Simulated scan of single mutants.
Amino acid sequence: MYKKNYPVLWINPMPHRSLKLSIGNLSKNKIGKRVLAKIKQHLLMLRIVNDRFLVLSPIYIPLIDNRWIVKLNSRLIFLQIKFMMMILRIKPLVFITATANDVSKLISSFEKIPWVHNAGDLFHDLRNITHESRTRIYEIEKRIFNSADVVLAASNKIAMKIESMVNDKEKVITFPHGVDFNHFCKDFYHEIPLLQDLPKPIIGYFGSLTGANDQDILVEIAEEGFTLVLIGDQLYDYSRLYQYRNVHFFPAVDYRVLPDYARYFDLGILNWKKAEWIENCNPKKTYEYLALGLPIVSVPIPQLQSELEDLIYFASNPKDFLSQIRKALEENSPILIQRRKLRAQSVDWSLKLRVIEELINAR
């Protein structure tokens, strides 16, 4: 939307998991850094990136497992957003939501404004949430799905589940994630000295490192002697990998320079443990890997098996994962690299934006 010159007010969502469940077994130092970062973000409240992109971080009470506090937070967020829109004199063309924060009252207060909800995940299926929270989030998502004009589902499985929750199934559209193709596939990359001298081939992953990642797969790769590069914040205990000199951890990098790091990969991995949210998902990083021309080895993910069976190598256990890595590296070729890039280019976000633009232009 921003690249198409639409002004954007981005509203950071309220979390769906309590701090205790979110931090897992992080060290006290890392917990402190995360808490301080959150406090700083919300105290700032409004960040003006430029004259067309504003970021609002509403203040809320961080006791999200208490249903009365959740209701109070919904009201607080509603008032803050309405106030900010009034001060900034914002007249929305379209509402685009992507979380399970209940904004139906806010949006219904504006007449005839199209509402598009992008369901990249089903939040009530996510791990590490209490039964009470799961039930509450399910009811909120059901209300959102029924209230929105259009619901975009990132995978066929998400679409099927949403259809079972809504009265009007016609509003649900399977709408897989896209990619900013030209951001990842470009003519010039900056050099990263810490990466350019590492032994090849480099097996890489970027994204948060959590308890959902299958560390047994990472150990198998490390034991084989491959250079393993992991880019992202460690939100779980990864100390079992510290003994390997061929495993290199990098903190999360700014999205603007991520391709400069990832272009050193020779292969990208998707190594999550089997879970309901994995069965639902359609990982965004898949097409980012493809835009870089990288071969991919992944655990079985239904949407990827349906869409990209000809371009991704799948493995259901650590031993098979390692075998598929070897096979993918051996079979890699300029022709396959080009096929991957072309597939990624076909789902560039600029093409996918047309659905939302049609809603705006139809007003």
Rank of each mutant, 00 (worst) to 15 (best):
N182S: 11
H183D: 06
H183W: 14
F184P: 03
C185L: 07
C185D: 09
K186G: 07
D187C: 00
F188I: 05
H190I: 07
I192R: 13
P193W: 06
L194C: 05
L195F: 12
K200S: 06
I202Y: 11
I203T: 03
G207K: 01
S208Y: 07
L209A: 02
L209D: 00
L209T: 01
L209C: 02
A212I: 09
D214G: 03
Q215N: 00
D216L: 11
I217M: 12
V219N: 05
E220W: 00
I221V: 14
I221P: 00
A222N: 12
A222H: 02
G225R: 06
F226Q: 11
T227A: 11
L228R: 03
Q234G: 04
Q234P: 03
Q234R: 15
L235M: 12
Y236Q: 08
Y236R: 06
Y236F: 12
D237H: 07
Y238P: 01
R240W: 00
R240E: 15
L241E: 14
Y242Q: 15
Y242W: 14
Q243K: 15
Q243Y: 14
Y244L: 09
Y244G: 06
Y244N: 09
V247Q: 11
V247D: 08
H248N: 09
F249Q: 14
F250A: 10
F250I: 09
F250L: 13
P251R: 15
A252R: 15
A252T: 10
V253L: 13
R256D: 13
V257R: 15
Y261A: 04
A262Q: 10
Y264K: 11
Y264L: 06
Y264A: 05
Y264M: 09
D266T: 15
L267G: 00
I269E: 03
I269Q: 01
L270A: 10
N271E: 04
W272I: 01
K273P: 07
A275V: 04
A275I: 00
E276F: 12
E279P: 00
E279Q: 02
E279L: 03
N280L: 15
N280K: 08
P283E: 05
P283W: 03
K284I: 15
K285S: 12
L290E: 07
A291C: 04
A291S: 09
G293D: 13
I296S: 01
